[in-house]
């Protein structure tokens, strides 16, 4: 997987990371275009600008490793392998969606690809990730669980309870904080008493890694170190991956609270084309190779959207199914 002298991942992994980043970027572009067109009204939290983090994490995970993610999570899901067709059908609220249209954009679940939960509650991915990791520890199945969350989630109690328990029990879990500099509309510095979320790891006697989450190689190295540690019984790690969200908190957000120059600078340093160019410059791939990857994703995303918008709506009888294992009587 990696070159032992440079620590750099081998070519196949470098290209795989790009492929995931390209998929996430294009998927987001289609989502926003569709929202603008009015063809698919939905609640949507764009992950644009944060593509590198889950791409670099996921190439270090197996299919049956678990992730727990949050409402801003399509990048985490796609990187882990949630299929486009079922994802888009769920975004569109259709019967063919991952969750039969009953969860929607904030609650995508797809155990086959290891996406065990997407929560709409800030901070709640972490205590549940502990439980998945606990099951792995008891069963000895060697799986690792990754909990994704934002910088603001490090200020809620669940973060502190979960990190403490994970450390006391040496659980095979990796906490990945995607620090995109804002909690909803409030700047990180205004809401957080420490300069670095990763410093909080010290309170729980676990390694804390502060990394440029927009640098694919640095992010890959950080993720590999943490995932290897978890898999080898070394317990949890807190990674703070620095990034920037390009399109505000929720789609339609006017971004009035953001510094325009800061945002423009972040967008000018867009990590996806930057990495694409690096791959070409370093001779890892040709323009044609990467163009073929991009074009393949484009076809698949368009097809998934078309299928989703043509798919049937769930039957109203679904209201009485999946509440409990046995269906409820309609009332």
């Amino acid at each position: 997987m990696t070159d032992s002298t440079t620590g750099q991942p081998d070519k196949a992994v470098l290209i795989d990371m790009y492929s995931k980043m390209s998929l996430i970027k294009q998927n987001d572009e289609h989502a926003r275009k569709l929202l603008m067109s009015g063809r698919l009204p939905m609640i949507y939290y764009s992950p644009r600008g944060q593509e590198v983090i889950p791409s670099a994490v996921s190439v270090n995970l197996n299919q049956d490793d678990y992730i727990c993610t949050i409402y801003r999570g399509t990048h985490d899901m796609l990187a882990k392998g949630v299929p486009l067709d079922a994802l888009w059908a769920e975004l569109a609220g259709r019967a063919t969606g991952t969750c039969k249209g009953k969860g929607g954009p904030m609650h995508i679940t797809h155990p086959e690809s290891g996406c065990m939960i997407t929560t709409g509650i800030v901070g709640s991915s972490m205590p549940i990730a502990n439980g998945l990791a606990l099951a792995s520890q008891v069963k000895g199945d060697g799986k690792v669980t990754v909990a994704y969350f934002g910088d603001a989630a490090s200020n809620i109690g669940a973060f502190h309870e979960a990190l403490n328990m994970a450390s006391v029990w040496k659980l095979p879990v990796v906490f990945v904080c995607q620090n995109n500099r804002f909690g909803e509309h409030t700047r990180f510095e205004k809401a957080t008493a420490v300069g670095k979320v990763s410093d909080r790891a010290a309170s729980y006697s676990m390694p804390g890694i502060h990394v440029d989450g927009n640098d694919p190689l640095a992010m890959h190295a950080a993720a590999k170190e943490a995932i290897d540690r978890a898999r080898n019984g070394g317990g949890p790690t807190l990674i703070e991956a620095m990034t920037f969200r390009f399109y505000g908190h929720v789609f339609g957000d006017a971004d009035g609270y953001m510094d325009k120059a800061e945002k423009e600078a972040a967008m000018a340093a867009d990590p996806v084309p930057r990495y694409r160019q690096w791959l070409i410059d370093q001779g890892h791939a040709s323009e044609a190779d990467l163009g073929a990857i991009d074009a393949g994703h484009e076809v698949n995303i368009k097809s998934a959207i078309d299928k989703a918008l043509d798919a049937p709506w769930p039957d109203v009888s679904e209201l009485y199914k999946d509440v409990f294992i046995n269906d409820l009587a309609a009332v």
């Binding site: 939960i117 549940i128 998945l132 990791a133 109690g157 006391v168």
Partner: peptide, 28 residues
């Protein structure tokens, strides 16, 4: 000690751990 554990006084973490373990095939 793997199957029976005293926890920190952390009710969110206790229930979260039970939820995750249950999702992964345990009966906590």
């Amino acid at each position: 000690d793997l199957r029976v554990r005293s926890t920190p006084i952390s009710e969110q973490a206790i229930i979260g751990a039970a939820i995750g373990a249950a999702m992964a095939g345990m009966r906590p």
